[in-house]
Design a binder for these strands. Structure first.
Lengths: 197, 197
DNA sequence: CTTGACGGCTAACGTCATTAGCCTTAGGCT
DNA sequence: AGCCTAAGGCTAATGACGTTAGCCGTCAAG
């Protein structure tokens, strides 16, 4: 019987693809083995188990998303960069919901976890976008968290079918990004004007 | 041997409490049974199984969150209402992460699912908050989705330990809500001014 | 051509959700 | 009071899954 020629990388890629198809929560060793035309225990020659597999998918997702964000924002600044990054993020999650979901179930295990730099690189792209808005140093982290929360929340809700009105979701996304853009612009000068001019 | 005196409601409540403690993904029938001083199969006399249990927890969470939002925004309007609603949402998710997580894994099963009105009531509170900003009718859904995405994303990331800088998370939250408040205010007059004045 | 690490496989085990079927409880009815 | 039935416990059994142990063929390096 010839060999299947699997490696940790191909198994991870296949698992990620399968997770995108059936949902991360439905991903099982048996299903993955079947997809790879192999018996379940054979997978353990390449990955340490389900937890390790999830971790590998998370690293893959963070890396891919980081790449997508870098590519999208390359050569852009300000509003252009924000819009491009937001679109890229949404497009990635929509195209790869399973991978992205894996990333949300896994935390870095220790200080030398490769997941950490992968996430940092992804966050770095958002930071780069925000740099174009010339925020105060102490506001950059706030803005980064806001941006990430918003894009993460929107993407997750969209993918999970949480939006139930028939209003166009694309329009809502554009509107939201526009609001953030205007908000960040207004923040360039301190935003402590309390309620009315 | 005397009876334990369980009902669907008490089982659901115990499951929700347990999910808050150990995380929704760690909730198991065995653990829940142990907590209720009962053998696992006995639970099936009260709930239909794991899926039904998750659904019941989701309904509970949506109802409780709806109540919390209503209470928080009662008698407030505009910025006050927004801040109160945002705080209530964050406080609820922080206090009951397991219940809230259950709500994100469950979708309404059909047109007469009780989950639907529970979610609608929760969304209604946010709509009420937004009404204070006098938005155009066609922007209300956009604003609702934006608000929900932002609060959902922030809460989920916070609870899952996704924020890793040492900047105070409370400050970030206030900053974010402030940005949205200003953004919504600026939207009262059309926000179609494209990039620069 | 040999050889040894590598990568398949089968068999077996533990955990968990779920179902079937039994038996006791406890409250309502006569 | 005493019965009778529905409800709510329990044990036993099944099936899906993840995981481990151990066997055996493959294939590339020497």
């Amino acid at each position: 019987m010839p060999r299947a020629g699997l490696t940790a990388a191909t198994v991870t890629e296949a698992a990620a693809a399968l997770a995108d198809e059936v949902g991360f929560s439905q991903l099982s060793m048996g299903l993955l083995a079947e997809r790879l035309a192999v018996k379940t225990p054979s997978l353990y020659k390449h990955v340490g188990g389900q937890a390790d597999l999830a971790h590998r998918i998370a690293v893959l997702a963070a890396t891919e998303l980081g790449d997508a964000l870098r590519d999208a924002t390359q050569g852009r600044a300000g509003t252009d960069a924000l819009v491009a990054a937001a679109r890229a993020m949404r497009a990635y999650v929509t195209a790869h919901p399973g991978r992205y979901a894996a990333g949300n179930t896994v935390r870095p295990t220790g200080p030398d976890d490769v997941l950490t730099p992968a996430i940092d690189r992804m966050l770095g792209s958002f930071s780069a976008v925000l740099r174009g808005y010339a925020l105060d140093a102490d506001q950059e982290v706030h803005a980064l968290r806001m941006l990430r929360s918003m894009l993460h929340g929107f993407a997750v809700l969209e993918v999970e079918g949480g939006f139930r009105f028939d209003t166009d979701v694309d329009d809502s996304f554009k509107w939201m990004v526009d609001l953030v853009d205007h908000g960040l612009r207004a923040t360039r000068t301190p935003l402590d004007a309390p309620t009315s001019p």
